[in-house]
Computed example of a mutant assay.
Amino acid sequence: MATIPYPPAPELGWYADDPVTGVGAAGQAATAGATAKGSADGDIEDWDSTVLSSSFTTKAPQKVYTLHNDSTGQTIVIDKSTLLGRKPSADVPEGAKAEKVEDPTRTTSRNHAAISIDQNGVLWIEDYGSLNGTYIIRDGQETQVVKGTPQELDAPATLRIGDQFFQLTEQQR
């Protein structure tokens, strides 16, 4: 598979919760910008218009999926609506969960993306305005998940969350 380019990791101090002292003017501007526009690290207070809304999944899904990252060894089980991020909000709608993405390169946003299984068993993914994007990779072609627009997702697939690659597979029951 061809190497797919992605943006470099943000500098320390870019995210508001970075443990950095003595951040320069550029770091302060970047941090203020990220918080002000509410995209990379701003809190998402209203989940109603997203794939995490309870109206999106009104009954328990019949399928279970896994996301596996070979680089970090992390496996995330998608058995209900799941918010993915570097430090995801603990305040998600009832019936949903939050999962921390292990990201040693720091390219995953706090609330990066969400994956849900709708009431018909269809899998969906949505980007929450992440800084480095969410991508679906099939046959060497990368498709960006547009911010705020749920996109149907089929397994098996490869997902790029920031610069972390995950294999999405359906679990056999």
Rank of each mutant, 00 (worst) to 15 (best):
R173K: 11
E11K: 14
K37M: 14
A157D: 07
S130G: 02
G42R: 09
G27F: 03
F56I: 03
T105N: 14
L123H: 05
F166H: 06
V145H: 15
L12A: 15
A36N: 07
T158M: 10
K100D: 03
I117V: 12
W124A: 02
I76F: 00
W124Q: 01
S55P: 00
V77D: 10
T57E: 07
W47F: 15
I137C: 09
M1P: 10
V51K: 05
D48R: 14
L168W: 02
T107V: 05
H112G: 08
L159I: 06
E102R: 14
V146E: 15
L83M: 11
R86K: 06
A60G: 02
I136E: 12
R173P: 15
Q144T: 12
Q119F: 04
S89V: 11
Q164C: 00
A26F: 01
Y65H: 14
A90S: 10
H112L: 07
K147T: 13
T143S: 13
S54M: 12
S89I: 11
D79F: 09
T31I: 04
A30Q: 08
W14Y: 14
A113I: 00
W47A: 08
I76G: 00
P8Q: 11
R86S: 01
F56E: 01
Y128D: 05
N69A: 15
Q167M: 09
A36D: 12
N111C: 05
K147V: 05
E11I: 02
K97A: 03
D103A: 06
W14F: 15
Q119P: 00
A26G: 01
G140H: 14
T108N: 02
K87V: 01
W47R: 06
T35F: 03
T66Y: 03
Q144V: 14
I161L: 15
K97S: 06
I44K: 12
G129C: 08
D163Y: 00
I161Q: 06
A36C: 12
G33W: 13
I78W: 08
S130I: 03
H68K: 13
L153E: 11
A29C: 00
I4Q: 13
D163A: 07
L12F: 15
E142C: 13
A114M: 07
R110D: 05
P156T: 00
K87H: 12
G121F: 09
A36R: 15
